[in-house]
């Protein structure tokens, strides 16, 4: 399991009810179910991934986060998880609002466009960055709204969303982000993980 999922799992207490939005093949769901006794549900757009989740014995709903989150009542989950997908939505702000309506808390992770390798790629090569967390070419990337850790940090603050915890992830190391180290973390982390609440 990737380190990102381990960090997410560490943010969630045992026996909670969790919705994994864009749950893919259900790796995180299975881990949370097995190790933390989490009552877990998934929402996934890809039919193949939904099949993989069913084969793992997971409760998953085939659907699109931009349209299908509205069926869940307010605060019906303790946590709603969105891993590396916010930037792929047509309207990320609306999805973020929905996550925070459905979940008492939300855990959102974003691939950091401010990561030094990304910046160097564009600066030196002059082409759109392709990295481990951003593996696609400009013409086939699902990412419509790339942002940096700094962008997301400021965006969340401007919407009066409370940040409980923000972590910078670089390979196997995670560290806390705060106002004072934001610039540095924005340069050296390839992933940002935010535990937020509204």
């Amino acid at each position: 399991m990737k380190n990102e999922f381990q960090v997410i799992a560490d943010l969630i207490e045992k026996d909670k009810k969790v919705l994994d939005v864009g749950c893919a093949d259900g790796t995180l769901m299975r881990f949370l179910k097995d190790n933390k006794n989490i009552n877990i549900r998934g929402l996934e757009i890809s039919k193949e991934k939904v099949q993989e989740c069913i084969a793992k014995g997971l409760t998953v709903i085939e659907g699109n986060a931009e349209k299908d989150l509205k069926q869940f009542p307010d605060k019906s989950f303790d946590y709603v998880v969105l891993s590396q997908t916010l930037q792929a939505f047509l309207n990320p702000e609306l999805v973020l609002d929905e996550l925070l309506r459905v979940g008492k808390k939300a855990i959102v992770t974003i691939p950091n466009f401010g990561y030094w390798k990304v910046r160097f790629h564009l600066l030196l090569k002059g082409t759109m960055p392709v990295t481990k967390t951003l593996p696609d070419e400009w013409y086939n990337t699902p990412n419509l709204h790339m942002c940096t850790i700094k962008d997301f940090f400021h965006f969340v603050k401007s919407k009066d969303i409370k940040i409980f915890k923000s972590l910078a992830l670089n390979n196997l190391n995670s560290s806390v982000i705060n106002e004072s180290n934001l610039g540095v973390k924005n340069l050296f982390a390839d992933l940002g993980i935010f535990l937020i609440e509204k």
């Binding site: 549900r41 039919k47 939904v50 099949q51 069913i54 997971l58 409760t59 998953v60 709903i61 085939e62 659907g63 069926q71 869940f72 009542p73 019906s76």
Partner: peptide, 18 residues
């Protein structure tokens, strides 16, 4: 039906088969 079940927090999975 899925929506009705989700709105009461029931345990429901759904798939549309191609």
């Amino acid at each position: 039906i899925v929506i009705a079940l989700n709105s009461i927090g029931a345990d429901v999975g759904f798939v549309e088969i191609e």
